[in-house]
Amino acid sequence: MSFEDLEPRPRRGEAIAALGREDLDLYAVDELQERIAALEAEIARARAAIQGKSSQRSAADALFNFR
């Protein structure tokens, strides 16, 4: 067992909350553009997860619809 196993796991949403508190004045324009690109990639990933979950739910609803 390592010391990492003993550390508490980060709470869900904690990382995004930390991003919202970060001081953007410290970043240069090109760094802010990189940050935006990374956030847009994360948004696309979240949208893909939503789409996948919606598809799975639709399939399950169709399977268990007894009408």
Rank of each mutant, 00 (worst) to 15 (best):
residue 6 L to S: 04
residue 11 R to Y: 06
residue 24 L to F: 08
residue 44 A to F: 00
residue 38 A to W: 05
residue 34 E to Q: 14
residue 46 A to F: 06
residue 54 S to I: 01
residue 10 P to L: 01
residue 14 E to Y: 03
residue 3 F to R: 11
residue 41 A to M: 11
residue 32 L to Q: 05
residue 34 E to W: 09
residue 38 A to L: 09
residue 47 R to L: 12
residue 67 R to C: 02
residue 23 D to C: 01
residue 12 R to S: 13
residue 49 A to T: 07
residue 1 M to G: 12
residue 52 G to S: 05
residue 3 F to V: 08
residue 67 R to E: 06
residue 53 K to H: 15
residue 14 E to M: 05
residue 61 D to L: 01
residue 14 E to S: 13
residue 8 P to I: 05
residue 41 A to V: 02
residue 39 L to N: 03
residue 15 A to F: 12
residue 39 L to R: 09
residue 64 F to Q: 00
residue 53 K to W: 06
residue 5 D to M: 10
residue 64 F to E: 01
residue 25 D to E: 11
residue 61 D to P: 03
residue 31 E to L: 01
residue 45 R to C: 05
residue 6 L to H: 09
residue 24 L to Q: 06
residue 13 G to F: 01
residue 22 E to C: 07
residue 3 F to Q: 14
residue 61 D to V: 07
residue 11 R to S: 10
residue 16 I to C: 05
residue 49 A to V: 05
residue 14 E to T: 04
residue 59 A to G: 02
residue 47 R to K: 08
residue 53 K to F: 12
residue 55 S to Y: 02
residue 7 E to I: 11
residue 40 E to V: 12
residue 39 L to G: 03
residue 6 L to P: 02
residue 40 E to I: 01
residue 37 A to S: 09
residue 27 Y to Q: 02
residue 46 A to C: 10
residue 32 L to R: 04
residue 14 E to C: 08
residue 49 A to Q: 12
residue 33 Q to S: 12
residue 31 E to V: 08
residue 23 D to M: 08
residue 47 R to I: 05
residue 20 G to D: 11
residue 36 I to K: 14
residue 55 S to W: 04
residue 31 E to P: 04
residue 43 I to S: 13
residue 20 G to S: 10
residue 38 A to R: 11
residue 65 N to E: 06
residue 30 D to T: 11
residue 49 A to M: 07
residue 4 E to V: 08
residue 22 E to M: 14
residue 38 A to P: 00
residue 8 P to V: 05
residue 9 R to V: 07
residue 43 I to C: 10
residue 6 L to I: 08
residue 26 L to H: 09
residue 59 A to V: 00
residue 36 I to P: 02
residue 18 A to Y: 03
residue 51 Q to A: 15
residue 31 E to H: 03
residue 4 E to H: 06
residue 8 P to M: 02
residue 52 G to C: 01
residue 21 R to N: 11
residue 28 A to P: 04
residue 39 L to Y: 09
residue 22 E to F: 13
residue 7 E to F: 14
residue 28 A to F: 12
residue 55 S to V: 07
residue 64 F to P: 02
residue 6 L to C: 03
residue 51 Q to G: 12
residue 40 E to W: 00
residue 54 S to F: 07
residue 61 D to Q: 09
residue 61 D to T: 08
residue 47 R to D: 14
residue 4 E to S: 13
residue 4 E to N: 10
residue 44 A to N: 13
residue 11 R to V: 12
residue 10 P to Y: 04
residue 60 A to P: 01
residue 23 D to R: 06
residue 30 D to A: 04
residue 58 S to D: 15
residue 50 I to G: 00
residue 36 I to E: 13
residue 10 P to A: 04
residue 22 E to T: 15
residue 15 A to W: 10
residue 58 S to M: 12
residue 12 R to D: 09
residue 26 L to G: 11
residue 42 E to V: 09
residue 5 D to K: 13
residue 49 A to Y: 10
residue 20 G to E: 03
residue 56 Q to Y: 03
residue 42 E to I: 03
residue 6 L to R: 14
residue 25 D to R: 15
residue 60 A to L: 14
residue 31 E to F: 03
residue 66 F to K: 08
residue 16 I to L: 13
residue 2 S to T: 14
residue 54 S to M: 07
residue 4 E to A: 14
residue 32 L to T: 02
residue 20 G to A: 05
residue 39 L to C: 02
residue 1 M to E: 04
residue 46 A to I: 10
residue 36 I to V: 15
residue 56 Q to D: 08
residue 36 I to L: 15
residue 27 Y to S: 04
residue 12 R to L: 13
residue 39 L to H: 02
residue 64 F to A: 03
